[in-house]
C-alpha cells in the first residue's frame, strides 16, 4: 500500500513538473539561451578572470611566482605611461574624426537619400566586411611618403577603418527622429540651422555617443594599424605593440597587467566623456 502511494505520487508529480516546464516561459527561454551564455562564460568571462589573476603574479625567468604582488602594476605605470597616453589620444582623435566625417553622411542617408537608402547603407558597410589588414595596407600605399609612420597617419587609417561604426548608429538615431517636430519648428519660424542645433542634433546624440564609444574602446587595443602604417617605428607604437612585445618575451603577467591597466583607463575616459556630453546636452536645451 505504501509502495503504491509512492508510485502514485511520483506518477502524478512527474507530468505536472513537465507541464510546468513547458508552460514556464522563463525556464524554456533560459534552456534555449543557456548554451550560448555558457559559451561566453567559459570562453570569455573565465579567461578574463584568469588574466586578472595573472596580473597579480610575477614571471621570474621560466617560473611563475604566484605570490600576490603589485609589482607589475608599478612597472606598467612607471614605464609605459607615454604609450598609454598616446593610445588614448590616438583613439580619442580617431573616434572624434570618424564621427565628425560620418555624421553628415548619416544625415544625408537619413534625410536626403529617399529611394536609395538601402544602396547607400550597403555601400557604406561593404568596406567594413573586407579584410582590415588589406585596407590598411592599401591606405599606406596611397599615403604620401612623409605622412607614413606618423600618429596622424594612424588616425587617418582608423577614420577609414571605423566608418561603418560611426555611420550606422548615427543613422539609426536620425531615422528615429519624429519629422513633425521639424515641421512644427519650421512653422514656428525656426530656420534650418536653428532646427538642426535645437532638434536634430540633440535627438541624435545617443547615436553619436554610442558611435564614439564603439570606436574609442576597441581602438585602444589596435595592433594592425600602428604596426602597418607606422612600419614598426616606436613613434606610432600603441599599447598593443607593447603587449605583443611582452608576450614575445614570455612575460605574460606583465602583458596581462598592461592590458588591464589600458582597459581601466578606457573605462575612466568613457565615463568622463559620457558625463561631459550629458552636461553639454542639458545646456543645449
Amino acid at each position: 500500500m505504501a509502495a503504491g502511494t509512492a508510485v502514485d505520487t511520483s506518477a502524478a508529480k512527474k507530468p505536472s513538473w513537465g507541464a510546468a516546464f513547458t508552460r514556464s516561459e522563463a525556464l524554456r527561454g533560459w534552456t534555449l539561451l543557456s548554451p550560448t551564455t555558457i559559451l561566453m562564460v567559459v570562453g570569455l568571462a573565465a579567461p578574463l578572470v584568469i588574466m586578472l589573476l595573472y596580473s597579480f603574479w610575477k614571471q621570474e625567468g621560466l617560473t611563475l611566482n604566484t605570490d600576490f604582488t603589485l609589482a607589475n602594476y608599478a612597472e606598467v605605470s612607471g614605464k609605459y605611461y607615454t604609450v598609454l597616453l598616446r593610445s588614448l589620444w590616438i583613439a580619442a582623435l580617431a573616434a572624434f574624426f570618424t564621427v565628425l566625417l560620418g555624421y553628415p553622411v548619416a544625415y544625408y542617408v537619413a534625410f536626403h537619400a529617399k529611394n536609395s537608402k538601402f544602396i547607400w547603407l550597403i555601400l557604406l558597410t561593404i568596406p567594413f566586411w573586407t579584410s582590415y589588414l588589406l585596407r590598411v595596407f592599401a591606405l599606406r600605399v596611397i599615403m604620401p611618403e612623409e605622412l607614413r609612420a606618423t600618429p596622424a597617419a594612424v588616425v587617418i587609417a582608423l577614420t577609414h577603418a571605423w566608418a561603418a561604426f560611426a555611420i550606422l548608429p548615427i543613422y539609426v538615431s536620425l531615422e528615429k527622429i519624429d519629422r513633425t517636430l521639424l515641421e512644427a519648428a519650421a512653422d514656428l519660424g525656426d530656420g534650418a540651422v536653428r532646427r538642426f542645433w535645437r532638434i536634430t542634433f540633440p535627438l541624435s546624440l545617443p547615436g553619436v555617443v554610442s558611435a564614439m564609444t564603439l570606436i574609442f574602446v576597441p581602438t585602444i587595443g589596435d595592433y594592425v594599424t600602428p604596426s602597418l602604417i607606422g612600419g614598426g617605428k616606436p613613434a606610432t607604437f600603441m599599447i598593443a605593440n607593447i603587449i605583443q612585445g611582452q608576450i614575445k618575451s614570455n612575460d605574460w603577467p606583465l602583458a596581462a597587467t598592461t592590458a588591464i591597466v589600458s582597459m581601466i583607463m578606457v573605462a575612466i575616459a568613457v565615463y568622463f566623456f559620457v558625463a561631459a556630453l550629458k552636461a553639454a546636452s542639458r545646456s543645449l536645451r
Binding site: T37, M40, L48, I50, M51, G221, I243, W252, A256, A259
Partner: peptide
C-alpha cells in the same frame, strides 16, 4: 545575457587574444 553574448564585439581583440592564450596555456 545579451550584453554578455555581445561583449566580444566591444572588447579590444588584443585583450581577448591574450586572455585566451593564457587560459589555453
Amino acid at each position: 545575457a545579451m550584453g554578455l553574448i555581445s561583449l566580444p564585439l566591444f572588447i579590444p581583440e588584443i585583450l581577448l587574444g591574450l586572455a585566451l592564450l593564457i587560459i589555453l596555456n
